[in-house]
Design a protein around this nucleic acid. Structure first.
Ligand SMILES: [Zn+2]
Ligand SMILES: [Zn+2]
Ligand SMILES: [Zn+2]
Ligand SMILES: [Zn+2]
Lengths: 142, 142
DNA sequence: GCAGTATTGAGACTGAGTATCAATATGGTT
DNA sequence: AACCATATTGATACTCAGTCTCAATACTGC
């Protein structure tokens, strides 16, 4: 089971994968559903004193495994996790405020597939990432 | 000064940037010029007992700053550095042997520029990375 | 060669993430 | 509703990559 295009209840995705529904998992998931712009692990931990640090990291790993969040390494080297709304997508990351936006473009996907034919070896996957200054930050600068 | 298309002597690039020519820097640069496939920082350090660990990391940072190597975060989370032969390029990373190959495609660059117009906000840069099984690993599997 | 400054190296330190393991919570069963 | 087997938790110790500190040393311009 994988996250659908329509953001189902994350807890039921976890359950469907055969994992148990626990209070810590509920807490973490509930919190990150309110943070669509990407969040750090320690940020979650700080906001949930009742959940152990190890459990926060374990839950993040679990959510990564089942594909409902994505991991992003920012330009400054820090790591952010962000809810995955759609299955295959890329990211626009604002270098100023850090906001993460998902990005889809069928043309680029077609091209990427075409490149597979030209390249020696077999392409298994790809990642595309844009460094941007988002609309909000641009407006704010004026 | 930035690395040219023709891999100039890295030491002179360093000198041109106003940094001093030192033995540790010579050692690190010399070693990594023999490792075109990407290398880890500890790997360099292990191979150069006469150079301090901090200096290895400092030299890597310096080379990143002047743009003659690139930093790659592998799928397993480990970090590799790899000589940059050409200025703007992307990477084909073999998920089996870890070999890093540089990749250029004018079509994708044109497309990426075109996307800039469609997107709200301003695109500053991009990164594209392919996970592949390289020719050698494919052949070896047969 | 000298002076002034950039660089070095040993080692302490940080921060993200993982391993350990006894204690606890969960879900299926009766 | 209590019971059991096991998945999960949390405190803590640990690892690993990378950075900081600072006294000692090496460069470079003069
Ligand atoms: Zn995403
Ligand atoms: Zn894609
Ligand atoms: Zn490269
Ligand atoms: Zn490009």
């Amino acid at each position: 089971m994988v996250a659908s295009q329509f953001r189902p209840d994350l807890m039921s995705v976890i359950e469907d994968m055969g994992y148990r529904i626990t209070q810590p998992r509920r807490d973490v998931v509930k919190l990150l559903e309110t943070k669509p712009d990407g969040f750090g692990a320690e940020e979650i931990h700080g906001a949930l004193p009742e959940v152990g640090r190890a459990t926060v990291y374990r839950t993040i790993r679990l959510l990564l495994d089942i594909g409902v969040i994505c991991k992003l390494v920012m330009r400054d080297g820090s790591t952010k996790y962000s809810l995955a709304r759609v299955e295959h997508h890329h990211h626009l990351v604002c270098v100023r405020c850090g906001t993460v936006e998902e990005f889809l473009d069928s043309t680029i996907e077609r091209l990427v597939r075409a490149i597979g034919a030209e390249v020696s070896g077999e392409i298994l996957g790809h990642r595309i990432e844009f460094d941007v200054i988002c609309k909000t930050c641009l407006d704010y600068a004026n």
